[in-house]
């Protein structure tokens, strides 16, 4: 797990006397104990097991045979795996920036409303899709995204001739992204609102007195102040988007053809339809390596734009 170590960048701080350090260590271990135990037992252990499974030809039931790195070698040459990966990356590029931008914009707008009750109303409305049962809502959207469904009806009012969203390889991933943004932006909005509320009001007042335009105030006060939350939302959406599963399963079942078969869906099919648990585990590990790689890049880059309090 050498990747994990550099992820935590502990800011330089004055060294304390050694009894103090011992107390700190003891305290810390106590604080992390319950969570860490749970993670070790129900995440790390199964993850280690899946790493073990990935070097076998286990089908799920009978005794596994050791096959070395063969599954990994197969995966790198599997055209269906590479196409699943490209679908996933396209989806990430479509869904993540849009989702973060939309939720940030909406949160800033809501935050700028003067009437408190209006904030409450919009906050509630935008969060609504999150509180429904996802599977049921996805089935609903299957109907809305039909060629003559609600989405295209609305587009028609705007003079746009809507595509056959779920029936064409070019539009199916954007359609899934639209659904995900509709369903998921509430989470970003809540996080951004919580963060925006903690930006001291007097900073804005000072800026206004100095004659700063609203956008400048946003750019030079708001954005730096909420940058840790932007980072958080970005990371969470990235992790979610790279593992997108339920939405594609219900909306398009990976089709038409395999044009919306994402890596997570391919892993699921490999494990539970093709009964190749070993190969599925290897695929999952390759996905995890990509995820961890992206995380490390993000984490390294955050010092350039994320502003933590360093008083």
């Amino acid at each position: 797990m050498q990747n994990a170590a550099p992820l935590v960048t502990v800011p330089a701080r004055k060294r304390r006397a050694s009894p103090m350090r011992r107390q700190e260590t003891l305290m810390a271990l106590l604080l992390i104990l319950p969570s860490t135990l749970g993670i070790l037992a129900f995440a790390v252990l199964p993850i280690a097991a899946s790493l073990g499974i990935s070097v076998t030809n286990w089908g799920g039931l009978s005794k596994p045979n050791f096959v070395g790195l063969q599954n990994y070698a197969t995966a790198l040459q599997d055209p269906r795996a590479t196409s699943a990966l490209s679908h996933t990356l396209i989806y990430v590029l479509l869904a993540v920036p849009t989702g973060v931008l939309i939720s940030l914009t909406l949160a800033v707008w809501i935050n700028n409303l003067k009437a408190g009750w209006l904030c409450t109303v919009f906050r509630t409305v935008y969060y609504l899709p999150m509180v429904t049962i996802g599977v049921a809502v996805a089935l609903l959207w299957q109907v809305l995204l039909a060629p003559q469904g609600l989405v295209n009806l609305v587009l028609g009012w705007l003079g746009v001739n809507g595509p056959n969203w779920l029936g064409s390889p070019a539009w199916v991933l954007p359609a899934v992204a639209i659904f995900s943004v509709w369903q998921g932006s509430g989470q970003g909005i809540i996080l951004f609102l919580a963060s925006l509320a903690s930006v001291p009001k007097d900073l804005y007042e000072a800026a206004q007195l100095d004659g700063a335009k609203p956008f400048e105030a946003f750019r030079f006060i708001t954005l730096p102040m909420i940058s840790p939350t932007v980072f958080l939302v970005l990371v969470l959406s990235l992790i979610g988007a790279l593992q997108v599963f339920e939405a594609v399963l219900v909306l398009s079942a990976g089709g038409p053809g395999d044009s919306s078969t994402t890596v997570a869906l391919y892993i699921y099919k490999t494990a539970f339809t093709f009964f190749k648990m070993g190969y599925a585990s290897a695929l999952a590990w390759l996905l995890a390596v990509i995820l961890i790689g992206l995380m490390v890049i993000q984490w390294r880059n955050q010092s350039k734009w994320v502003n933590y309090d360093q008083v």
Binding site: L7, R21, I239, I267, A271, A280
Partner: peptide, 30 residues
Amino acid sequence: FARLRFPGQGLFFGSHLLSLMIPWQVTIIP
């Protein structure tokens, strides 16, 4: 993890992050 410094910090925090990154499809059976 955010405030204190202690041995094994990176490792323990890393395990928490790792749990986010492995698709559940394969850990569910173990």
